[in-house]
């Protein structure tokens, strides 16, 4: 039982971050905050991948003398790509927010919806 709680603590962290991020995306009406939530959500997945790749007692996967246990490098490589994707998403999102702000003078979702109803 305790093993599940503490032995797998990194998974708990992942789940906590994931739910936090997801909650922010759903509950916040401010577009910037939504993007922040999205980032937290994505980051939790990055952590999940790192956790998957970690081999107990392994070192950085660079061949050198005296080590024979290496961490699996593949998840890290994958996550590097995912991080780039995340950055790209964030920048597109921010770009959209900038233009939304120019068009609607606000970045609050409610107010945007209210303006749409009127026009």
């Amino acid at each position: 039982m305790m093993d599940n709680v503490f032995g797998l603590y990194n998974y708990w962290v992942v789940i906590f971050l994931m739910m936090t991020g997801f909650y922010i995306v759903i509950s916040q009406r401010n577009l910037i905050k939504k993007v922040i939530g999205l980032n937290i959500f994505q980051t939790s997945v990055f952590l999940l991948y790192i956790t998957i790749g970690k081999v107990e007692g392994g070192t950085a996967p660079i061949v050198s003398e005296g080590f024979n246990v290496y961490t699996n490098p593949l998840p890290s490589v994958l996550i590097l790509t995912a991080i780039v994707v995340g950055v790209a998403t964030t920048s597109v999102a921010l770009a959209l927010i900038v233009r939304i702000r120019e068009a609607y003078e606000t970045i609050e979702e409610d107010e945007i919806l209210a303006q749409e109803k009127l026009t």
Partner: peptide, 17 residues
């Protein structure tokens, strides 16, 4: 590409308005 994209993002956002 990465360097120029980053610079482009920065200058676009900073230059807005």
């Amino acid at each position: 590409t990465v360097a120029s994209v980053m610079i482009a993002i920065y200058s676009t956002f900073a230059g807005r308005g």
